[in-house]
């Protein structure tokens, strides 16, 4: 008995459909790469995000160290000119608070702690011991410590900022490379 293709529902795919198969395979391959890449990098991206947040926080805290010591200096100078004991305490509080920011969660605390903390400690000691009876020599030392502190803090802030920029450039390059892979796969699929 002859088989009637039409009646038995057995059909051969038309040539255009056959040509679509590699295209579909490539699309699936591209999607597969995408998902594989995404899954592989979820944990990595989370870590990167946390590190970026930490660096942003560190820059913020670094600048606060400068700002608080500047305020301390202003408060102390005003205290001396107005003979206001309370402003001496304010100056000490600002300096203490700047230590609090250094020892908060920080991307890399050693460079700042090594160089800046001793300067702040010395200035706190100078203010505590001399109070409103400041001498020129001690005031010069205080100012000298502050100038070194501002310089160190600025360098630290710059260093974190450069790391942040480098990480961002690396991230952009990786994403660009991935984009090229997708485009390449899509182009091959279109050719077929």
């Amino acid at each position: 008995m002859d088989m009637d293709d039409n009646q038995n529902g057995v059909q051969i795919a038309p040539p255009s459909m056959v040509r679509m198969v590699p295209f579909l395979v490539l699309i699936l391959f591209g999607i597969g790469i995408y998902y594989f890449h995404s899954l592989e990098h979820i944990a990595e991206r989370l870590t990167e995000s946390e590190q970026t947040m930490k660096m942003a926080d560190s820059i913020r805290h670094t600048l606060k160290v400068s700002i608080l010591n500047l305020r301390a200096s202003e408060a102390y100078l005003t205290a001396l000119s107005t003979e206001d004991e309370e402003l001496v305490n304010d100056a000490l509080n600002y300096m203490e608070a700047s230590l609090g920011f250094i020892f908060s969660e920080y991307v890399d605390v050693e460079p700042l702690a090594d160089r800046v903390v001793p300067l702040i400690r010395e200035n706190i000691h100078l203010i505590e011991t001399q109070g409103l009876a400041a001498t020129d020599e001690r005031m010069q030392k205080l100012q000298q410590n502050l100038n070194t502190l501002y310089r160190e803090v600025a360098q630290r802030e710059m260093s974190i900022w450069i790391t942040l920029q480098e990480d961002f450039i690396q991230f952009q390059s990786n994403e660009y490379r991935l984009q090229l892979v997708y485009q390449f796969v899509a182009a091959i699929a279109l050719v077929f």
Binding site: E96, L99, F103, V109, E110, A113, D114, V117, R121
Partner: peptide
């Protein structure tokens, strides 16, 4: 050395922060 330095400063910080 990095850890020791950090530890030292944290210790110093804890001691002098009254």
């Amino acid at each position: 050395p990095k850890l020791v330095t950090t530890g030292f400063f944290l210790f110093l910080f804890a001691v002098v922060s009254v």
